[in-house]
Design a protein around this nucleic acid. Structure first.
Length: 441
RNA sequence: AGAGAGUUGGCAGAGUGGUCGAAUGCGGCGGUCUUGAAAACCGUUGUGGGGUAACCCACCGGGGGUUCGAAUCCCUCACUCUCUGCCA
């Protein structure tokens, strides 16, 4: 943990603000600078436009409120007159309401339009990167903050995992192809058992670290997709069940974080730490090729996800704790890995700071991403309306999540790194009690 | 899937056209009393938006309508419950 022992300090958001618009209004330059770090095009224009719409929105709101206040007063007056039986006066007052009503209708329409416009613009903006996020546009500019573990020297005739799984008959892509399609492998025998072993191991480790286990639905509605930011941006990456208007989750983050949508959490229930195992479904339409062979990229895979909800001032410590947890798993599995701090251009849309974990895949001689641990600060919480009460005020919480871990690439790495001279695979010691065998093949 | 009944503040539960943002009870918070606690009593206690502020506005499942005025009437959608059917 030495590599990232000092938690980065949150440099520019001492005052956590309720609303993104309020934050932008009061931190215009910081917002623009942050957006530029994430390579948002025309950041200034986007921010100016938002501030302009926001100004108009507030003006319109004021006019509307005043008009409504007049209507309310008049209605009360009419009520009073009716009670006293002053019918003529009441009728006269009624005549006045017609113009007010028309004004209300117009202003209301205007306001709704402006609110929609504002929302549409806001939703286009990604989260702002944390100060410690390195400058850079592509994955090449990510910062390696730790590399650990011995890269194994493979025996003569060592093979990549897609050959090994065939030889050992533990994962069958052809069968999956028949019953579903490409990217839906069938795990058989020890292949299935080691998957189950890893899931149990990961869940137990998380439970030991204080995470509460959750088994969420794996189909979610559109509101949940919006809450965690998959919608409206990455619609095409999720499978969609049109008949029921439900999405297959791309990660357990979606249902588990959305558990707290529209919730005001009690302060002493914080931090919330949840873990869940789910299958994950990803359409990933583009970029299939040689480097995504075998288990490297799938349409369906299993993942154990850890999620935390905490107070703003605790979130960067929580991020470090989560990273440490993931690191511990990889160390126990005895796999070589490295940790990257993603640069502005390579980070996710909703994240403020992300650590990627990559395992070494010895036969492919490549690093494979197996976990991504992120602090979203209040970005998701703002959409989720996830808050807590402090000093009588409601304030947005921070959300974080990370894979702990995604299975297929871990399995690929185990298979490739641990192949023995006799062609068998040695199972990491920690998994043996879970799967009940020490070798495959 | 069919028939019926519901959806109100943290929870329970009143309220069927005019100070209802909403009675009452429980819970929460503050106080009195007490060595301390309980009980009792008093006060307070929803969310969001706008405004320097006083204060104003919106929200009683979602959306729309009637009306000078809607938690209350009408339409529509969603969900929940009960009974029947089906089912792992």
């Amino acid at each position: 943990m030495d590599a990232h022992s000092s938690a980065p300090t949150n440099s520019y958001r001492e005052n956590q603000l309720m609303l993104q618009t309020t934050f932008i209004r009061e931190n215009k330059e910081l917002t623009i600078a942050g957006l530029k770090k994430k390579f948002v095009r025309d950041a200034e224009e986007a921010v100016e436009l938002i501030l302009k719409i926001d100004r108009l929105r507030r003006e319109t709101q004021q006019e509307l409120d005043q008009t409504l206040a007049k209507s309310n007063a008049l209605a009360r007056e009419i009520g009073g007159l009716m009670k006293q039986g002053k019918k003529a006066e009441a009728e006269a007052a009624k005549a006045e309401t017609a113009t007010l009503k028309e004004t209300t209708r117009q202003l209301d329409e205007q306001l709704k339009g402006l609110e929609t416009e504002l929302y549409d613009e806001l939703v286009k903006l990604p989260n702002l990167p944390h100060a410690s996020v390195p400058e850079g546009r592509t994955a090449d500019e990510n910062e390696t903050i730790l590399e650990k573990g011995e890269k194994p020297v493979l025996p003569e005739g060592a093979q990549p995992h897609w050959e090994l799984i065939k030889k050992l008959d533990i994962i069958d892509f052809e069968l999956g192809n028949k019953i579903s399609g490409a990217g839906f492998p069938v795990y058989k025998g020890k292949g299935a058992r080691i998957q189950r072993a890893m899931i149990a191991f990961f869940l137990n480790e998380a439970a030991n670290a204080g995470y509460t286990e959750i088994q969420p639905p794996i189909l979610v509605n559109a509101d949940s997709g919006f809450g965690t930011g998959q919608l409206p941006d990455k619609e095409g990456q999720m499978y969609y069940a049109a008949a029921d208007d439900l999405y297959l989750i791309p990660t357990a983050e979606v249902p588990i974080t959305n558990l707290y949508r529209d919730v005001i959490v009690q302060e002493n229930d914080l931090p919330i730490k949840n873990v869940g195992h789910t299958p994950c479904f990803r359409r990933e339409a583009g970029s299939w090729g040689a480097h995504v062979r075998g288990l490297n990229r799938l349409h369906q895979f299993d993942k154990v996800e850890i999620v935390q909800v905490c107070k703003p001032e605790d979130s960067y410590q929580a991020l470090e704790d989560m990273a440490q947890h993931v690191q511990g798993l990889l160390e126990k599995l005895e796999l070589p890995f490295r940790i990257l701090r993603l640069c502005g251009g390579d980070m996710g849309f909703t994240s403020a700071l992300t650590y990627d974990f990559e395992v070494w895949s010895a036969a492919q001689e490549r690093w494979l991403e197996c976990s991504s641990v992120s602090n979203f600060e209040s970005y998701q919480a703002n959409r989720l309306k996830l808050r807590y009460k402090i000093d009588g005020k409601t304030q947005l919480l921070h959300t974080l999540n990370g894979s702990a871990l995604a299975l297929p690439r871990i399995l690929a790495s185990i298979l490739e790194n641990n192949q023995q001279a006799d062609g068998s695979i040695k199972i990491p010691k920690v998994l043996v009690p879970y799967c009940g065998f020490e070798t495959i093949g």
